[in-house]
Computed example of a mutant assay.
Amino acid sequence: MTEKTSGLVEALAGASSPSWARRVRAGRDLVPFAGDPEAAEALLGLLLDADDTAVVRRTAEALARVGTVTAVRLVARAAAGADENQADWLQTGVRDALAGGGGVPDVAAACGRLARDPDEAVRRGAAEVLEWAGGTRG
């Protein structure tokens, strides 16, 4: 097993941990694997974590900090399916990432690309994330 593969396996295991701190760590550790379908589903689960808002917030922050279309698409998918409380913490995570500075990629540009996504839920979620990022609805 390569180091990359073992990192993915360990992070996937952490995503289902009863420990909120381990789930937060798993969210950060899974971000580099966001394009992997299994990792993407685990990240989506963490973005909609029903047990701890810190998991939702920190996973959204980690994905927004990366700012790729793949990462922001997961936040948009979560936003489209989130309840009001989860949406508040997703928004907080996105804003935390953008407030952090340090060369944060353009989340608004990723949302612009997602506005043409074939999945209607992703388009709807991307419009919401764009608002959180300080953009405008298009």
Rank of each mutant, 00 (worst) to 15 (best):
V129G: 07
P105N: 10
R22H: 06
R73Q: 15
G138Q: 14
E3T: 15
G135H: 05
G101R: 02
A11W: 01
P105T: 04
F33E: 13
K4Q: 13
N85S: 13
D88L: 10
R113D: 15
R95V: 10
G103D: 04
D88E: 13
A54M: 08
L44D: 04
A109N: 07
G45F: 04
A99S: 14
L114F: 05
A15V: 06
L130M: 15
D49H: 08
E3I: 12
E61G: 03
L130V: 14
D29M: 02
V104I: 14
N85Y: 07
L98T: 06
V31K: 02
R73I: 15
V24S: 02
E10W: 03
V55H: 01
R28L: 13
R28T: 15
A39N: 05
R65K: 12
L8R: 08
V75W: 09
L30A: 13
E120H: 15
A26C: 01
R28Q: 11
G45D: 09
G103Q: 01
T2W: 00
T5C: 08
V55E: 09
V122W: 08
E84Y: 02
W89Q: 09
G135Y: 09
A34K: 10
S19M: 05
V55N: 01
E84T: 07
Q86S: 10
F33C: 10
E128S: 14
E3A: 15
Q86Y: 00
V122H: 01
